[in-house]
Design a protein around this nucleic acid. Structure first.
Lengths: 326, 326
DNA sequence: CTGAAAGCGCTAACAT
DNA sequence: ATGTTAGCGCTTTCAG
């Protein structure tokens, strides 16, 4: 490129990184050469010379989980629009693996997005070696983050159930490892002390399909007419167990999930869920990271959920009423 | 490292890449130094100097699709065991995007795994710039590949339905862009000419939930008692539409999916499916690629499916019989 | 078997 | 505004 544009390689570099420092005519000539040569700069050389790698890392606990794969997709797409590649890391919900992964990935990228981290924030920051980082589903001072508004999630779900006349509602906790889970717990606790409805906390529970299924008996024993699961997958487990046990949903039991995953709309009955815009989360995370890499100041974004009213919720005791009606 | 082990940097490099060329005592000394310093070589410098990047790329049409996210997970894990990082690419089911992605990714990796490619093989190979590549769900001469055994998938599904006494079966095609879809079409065609059962081909069809739902009327009109969908998601769409239309599954209609995705086990009724071990596919793809990078010869692996008999299939006309019983 | 030296392609200071 | 120079951290000849 330098040769055919008749300039020095240093000038080509400037055209690529700080075009405002280059004369208009030269700029044009170099850009033409780049175009005709289909020239693409070498990232390895760039990184080595102290420039940017145009690569970010996205670290998730489990890429096979649709919750994360949707976030990764959105983040990758957004990063791609500015020419960044993405390195994918997995942490397996293990703090040590997570720190190792951050430490390892940080060496090769301009910045990283860490989803649902389980290690202490300080350890994370240390492992990132000063690289810009944004946290998804966790807030920490000094580090930009994007998280679902847990307060609104609980409020939307409980309000919906209460408006349906439920007054005893089971609320299932999530893994203690997740900040979002802990935060939701606190909110539920506060709400339990305040609202007229009775909130029965169910914990510990595993937020998987099997974990949800295993919960059914405890839910029934607690005498509730409705349950707010930790997430959609767990809610589907409850749904399946209920149907297997001959309990009608929503007539005997209303079930509300969280996240609004596509799979919830494939169940029967269709799962009522508090939907979180995961694409927005992923895209926002990428946005925040790119801004931070560009030297911007950290920001914390909260994603507001929306209620997806579907078939798994209804008023309590509909069946009982029908049965007692002669 | 070179300093504290008292050797030249070139020797450190040899220890890392071809330890057999180094004296036993020196080797030990350098390895100790590496250990105490927690030294990790710089990939950018390595690549620049002509060495390996210890990075591979995995390209999928859509990472939010569980089919691919499971493959990616398995491939990434396997690559991770030998210290390789993975760059994630998405092709959006568009041949041009796909070629661009391959071309772009190939510059930065030791090799690539391309899942369900839609571009011509020669174009793919060209875009890969001579980098080792393995294809998933597509066979091409000269390029290693791993694919599900489509013949066995069709055989398993049809045999199952025939053994249940179905003799008119709808078979739904997949996207013409997919090699696997075309291949399955050919196999179905051959089977249609041979078997005693009547196979009604339904095409074109979109392998999504909505695509499946939209198919219900055509399926009913064809007068079949069972349907083999292109994949699980589409099958779930058929299931949902059937239930919405008041048709009982499996009594009025048996439905068989393909892939054995977890979500199929969360539906109601549980989806009968021809399961493909996607983890094995991902791991095998990584295996083949690493072997190829190491200079091995290309190989083609076929993954054999297993039938997951669940609730969405039964003998035909069960309901009719019951109704005509009295 | 190991040290020495060249250079991968780029960026960032410095010089003009 | 552009050319020049000196590396970035490694691998790879080539000597010894």
């Amino acid at each position: 490129v330098a040769a055919i544009a008749g300039v020095h390689s240093g000038t080509v570099s400037r055209v690529l990184t700080r075009p405002e420092l280059v004369g208009a005519e030269t700029l044009q000539r170099v850009q033409d050469a780049i175009e005709t040569l289909q020239y693409v700069p070498n990232r390895a050389a760039r990184q080595l010379a102290g420039g940017s790698t145009s690569t970010i890392a996205v670290l998730v606990p489990d890429i096979a989980n649709p919750f994360f794969s949707i976030i990764v997709q959105a983040a990758r797409r957004h990063a791609g629009t500015v020419g960044s590649l993405v390195l994918l890391g997995e942490a397996d919900l293990d703090p040590t693996t997570e720190l190792d992964a951050v430490d390892h990935l940080a060496r090769h990228v301009d910045g990283l997005i860490v989803c649902s981290p389980t290690s202490p924030t300080t350890a994370l920051a240390h492992a990132a070696r000063g690289r810009p980082m944004v946290l998804v589903n966790r807030r920490a001072r000094g580090i930009p983050s994007v998280a679902a508004n847990q307060g609104a999630i609980v409020a939307l779900a409980i309000d919906h159930l209460v408006s349906l006349q439920h007054d005893r509602i089971a609320v299932v906790s999530g893994p203690a490892r997740y900040w979002s889970s802990l935060r939701r717990d606190r909110i539920v606790e506060r709400q339990a002390a305040r609202g007229p409805e009775k909130l029965i906390r169910i914990t510990p529970a595993i937020p998987t399909f099997a974990g949800g299924s295993a919960l059914l008996s405890r839910i029934r024993e607690s005498g509730v007419t409705a349950v707010l699961a930790f997430n959609d997958i767990q809610a589907l487990g409850i749904l399946a167990a209920a149907s297997a046990a001959g309990h009608a949903v929503p007539d005997d039991l209303s079930v509300v999930g969280v996240d609004g995953l596509p799979t919830g709309a494939m169940a029967s009955p269709l799962l009522t869920s508090v939907g979180v815009d995961l694409e927005a989360m992923g895209q926002t995370a990428a946005d925040l990271l790119l801004a931070r890499i560009a030297g911007g100041t950290p920001a914390d974004v909260e994603i507001d959920p929306v209620l997806l009213t579907r078939g798994s919720t209804a008023g309590p005791g509909r069946q009982r009423q029908e049965k007692s009606a002669p």
